[in-house]
Nucleic acid binder design. Structure first.
Length: 484
RNA sequence: GGGACCGUGGUCAAGCUUGGUACGAUACGCGGUUUGGGUCCGCGUGAUCCCCGGUUCGAAUCCGGGCGGUCCCA
């Protein structure tokens, strides 16, 4: 695409070339701009952040319905708080940003930029917690966290600063916390479901759980490049943090007892990336109507001398849709041709295009074009709003169903290492029998280009043979994949 | 951690071997023309060729060092 031939328009980048496609879409659809002059830090731009905000709102609404209060904790954490829980330090120490100076002076007490907020939150929980009547404590916050990633960074998938929502809760009993884990998982799933994203819910193997957790649940979703994208995690922290931070309360019998805690996080960059990467096509984004900043774009087709009919009719329809609560935009810019506008709004992934020309104006009709299938429907003005909503539903269901079918087509079963290797080479998500021995997991990681991500959490899968690695009795059905 | 590649207008780029301050496209702005799938034409804006040093009359180009970025493998 050197543009040597001026008559040749910019070619669309096929989605098969995912990397190139993705970089192009981020910029063209104003999702994010990766040219910020610090590696691993990305600017969210207008369209992308508008979508992100809608995802954030969905999640926050769910969490608050669950009783999580919204809060905002500071971004800095003192060194001594950060170092209270051993496993936690070990897991994160290598990737924290330190604040060591203020002005010209070295700080007596060094600070870190939160890589996650447990160690910021628990000292406050300790102050707030006196009796069992104070429990549960449930909060959430949407904020940026900082991790000095050493692996290759990629906009929205892996940055050194990323936007997420984290929930933190403290409970009377281990079982209560376990219920909270389930509740959080349900809220997360409902967000992914509304985005039409398919995913697998895995319990991470012990060697890959959150630093300081009893166990970790993760939502892994497919990606066109064959890696899986972890879009959310929920952790039962047992008593690990409660003991380290002395989260105690007086129980009903007047005895001091330790609370038990959970935490969970959803990365909005990755969730947004999944939405883009799953549903997008050669023409650009395809957004689920629920999160599209604009749901319908109205394009008047103007003929010389007849502009007025199309324009005023288009304005009328715009008002009608807006009144009905549809997020519509009227693109009546006279400088561009309809074709130019079609390409542009397709790149933005607007679910429906409404074309109104002299024909429609005369007949009081409208032509609706679906972004996902490009299918055209001619509707009467009187049934426009109703039809628009029907099409939104149809688009959503189509995206969701295609997504599900895609995930299913990527999951393969392998019964020996050769088979596993072959499937990994073709970038599948592979189900294997596993004895549960971490050594076998490490050997698998060593021998193929993927790793054990975990076992199904939401449903039980019974092993069907011997461990793919060592040949001993299989105890679990594990999922192996490439990863970000 | 190991390896490969790359830094030239906002973006994509030619030029680099064989040194002479940069071909284009796209984007953006203005004017006109057109408008049911990227209309065409004209004019214009926009580049310390990543940085520092060296060689040279002269460096985007050659040499040394640095910084930044991308990708692949563990």
């Amino acid at each position: 695409m050197t543009g040597k031939n001026p008559s040749e328009r910019k070619e669309l980048i096929p989605k098969e070339s995912f990397s190139e496609w993705y970089d192009n879409v981020l910029l063209e659809a104003k999702i994010a701009d990766d040219r910020y002059p610090v590696k691993g830090f990305t600017v969210y731009t207008g369209w992308g952040f508008s979508v992100a905000k809608r995802i954030i709102a969905m999640l926050e609404e769910g969490l608050e319905a669950n009783g999580n209060e919204p809060m905002q904790f500071p971004v800095v954490i003192p060194e001594d708080s950060f170092k209270k829980e051993e496993d936690h330090i070990e897991g994160f120490a290598g990737e924290v940003f330190w604040i060591t100076h203020a002005g010209e002076n070295e700080l007596d007490r060094r600070l870190i930029l939160r890589p996650t907020s447990e160690t910021a939150i628990y000292p406050m929980f300790k102050l707030w917690l006196r009796s069992h009547q104070d429990l549960p404590i449930k909060m959430h916050q949407t904020c940026n966290v900082y991790r000095y990633e050493t692996k290759a960074t990629r906009p929205l998938y892996r940055g050194r600063e990323f936007l997420w929502n984290e929930g933190h809760t403290a409970h009377v009993s281990y079982e209560d916390a376990e219920e909270e884990v389930k509740a959080a998982a349900k809220i997360y799933r409902s967000v992914y479901d509304r985005l039409g994203l398919s995913y697998i819910t895995l319990k991470r193997p012990d060697f890959d759980k959150f630093a300081g957790a009893d166990y970790s649940i993760a939502f892994d979703t497919w990606n066109p490049d064959g890696k899986v994208n972890q879009i959310g995690t929920v952790h039962h922290l047992g008593y690990n943090f409660a003991k380290a931070f002395e989260l105690t309360y007086e129980d009903a019998n007047g005895e001091q007892a330790y609370a038990t805690t959970t935490c969970y996080g959803m990365g909005f960059g990755r969730t947004l990336a999944a939405t883009i990467a799953h549903h997008g096509d050669d023409h650009g984004l395809v957004l689920p109507p629920a999160v599209a900043p604009k749901q319908v774009v109205i394009i008047p087709i103007l003929f010389k001398g007849k502009e007025e009919q199309a324009t005023s009719y288009a304005e009328e329809l715009y008002g009608k849709l807006t009144d009905a609560g549809v997020r519509a935009v009227l693109d009546d810019d006279p400088r561009f041709n309809p074709g130019d506008k079609y390409y542009r709004w397709e790149m933005y992934g607007v679910p429906l295009r409404l074309e109104v020309g002299p024909k429609e104006a005369k007949d009081r009709k409208a032509t609706l074009v679906r972004r996902d299938t490009f299918e055209k429907t001619l509707v009467l003005e009187s049934e426009l709003v109703e039809k628009v909503h029907e099409l939104f539903d149809a688009i959503f269901m189509n995206l969701r169903d295609k997504d599900k079918a895609k995930l299913e087509s990527l999951i393969m079963d392998a019964y020996d290492m050769d088979q596993l290797r072959v499937y990994m080479e073709s970038r599948m998500i592979v189900r294997v029998n596993w004895c549960g021995d971490p050594d076998c997991a490490f050997n698998i990681k060593d021998q193929v280009s993927g790793e054990i991500r975990g076992t199904r959490w939401d449903e039980e899968e019974k092993p069907t043979g011997s461990c793919v690695m060592c040949g001993d009795q299989g105890k679990y059905v594990a999922y192996v994949s490439r990863t970000y």
